[in-house]
Every structure is written in C-alpha cells, then in structure tokens.
Amino acid sequence: MDSQTKQDKQVIDIKARLSANKVVHSGESDDESLWIIEAKQGSQTAFYQLYEKYHRRIYALCWRMLADKDSAEDVCQEVFVVLWQKINNFRGESKFSTWLYSVATNVVLGHLRKHKNWLQRVFSIEEQGANVAEPHVGLTDDSMLTMLDQHIACLPERARLVFVLFAVEGYRHEEIAAMLKMAVGSSKSQYHRAKSLLKESLIANGFVSIEEEINHE
C-alpha cells in the first residue's frame, strides 16, 4: 500500500469515526474537527484548511495589538508556525478558536517583549505611538481600516493592548493583568485611559456620535 492510499484510508477511517462517535469538539464543525485531527497527524493540507479559516481573524488581532501592518503579517505567520508545533497540545477542552486566540495573543505579546528597545526596557518607557494632542499625526493612511481601528492604532502601547484585549477580544481584566504582567487595577485604569484617549481623538477628528446626531435633530 503506497503512502497516498494509506493516508486516504486514514482520512476515511477518521470520517467514519467522527460520524459514528460524534467526536466533535464543542462548537466546531465536523470538517474543522477532521482538519484538527489530520493536522495533528502531520497533514499540511488539513493545516492549510485551518489557516484558510482563521488567518484573517488572527491577522486582525495581530494588527490591532501591534498597530503595524508589516509586523502584523510577520507575527501572523509566526502564530501559525507555533500552532503547527503546538497543535497536539489542543485537547478539545475549549473551542479551537478560543485556544487559537490564546496562542496568538501569547505570540504577539512575546513579539512585543522581544522587540522592546533597550530604552524601554531600562526606563520602562511605553508611551510610543501615542499622539493624542495631534491625533492626525499618528494616524495610518490605510483606507481599508475602519475609523476606530485607525484611532486604536494611535493609542499608547499598554492602553492599546488592554483596550483590544478587553473591549474587542472579550478577555477579563484578571486575564489581561496576568498576560501583561500588571496589576488588575492597572489593567482597568489603562482601559479607562484608552477610552478617554479614543473619545478625545474621535472628537478631534470630527466624529459625530449617534447622540449628537439625535440632539441635532
């Protein structure tokens, strides 16, 4: 039996097992469960299917956390390389997407730690990229981004990370504090700071809120 036939037989076996035993991880489609099993067995084809399904979401997470297109692309690639190495650690206790996002978040944070310059390390400086006084200066020209994404990109790093993780990704402050190695109170205060900065920035850039429109009417 050649290797291709053997692989095909394995896939058929897995499909049969899935339909017979309903071995489907919570919240995942049959296809996705099959891709996960096959990827665990070393199938790059199955892994590509997982990449195809998730890479845009992971890229969005990377972009929002890093606020830089090139870094986001590089780190998104790194996430999938790490996923390939760690996929056997996925036991199906949570949704695959939830597990994948936590892997991605850790890779992004690891990247940020690695690329912190020596000045930031020595003096704990983190306020780079923030330009609230002149919001237009730091804004990216990427027209594909929503207005809010462009403003999030201009937030200081810590405030941006907390805002993205809490408001966009839905992590709790306790989880964020553990991930970013900060106190829970600091996570909360960074979140409030991010909100204030975003509001100021939105106003400075002519954002008209729903309430304002209603008031005008």
Partner: peptide
C-alpha cells in the same frame, strides 16, 4: 472580525 493581509502569508 477579519482583516486581509496584503501579502500571501501561506
């Protein structure tokens, strides 16, 4: 929820 990277990452 999704953004499309400019280059092909695969």
């Amino acid at each position: 929820n999704e953004m499309i990277p400019e280059r092909d990452l695969w």
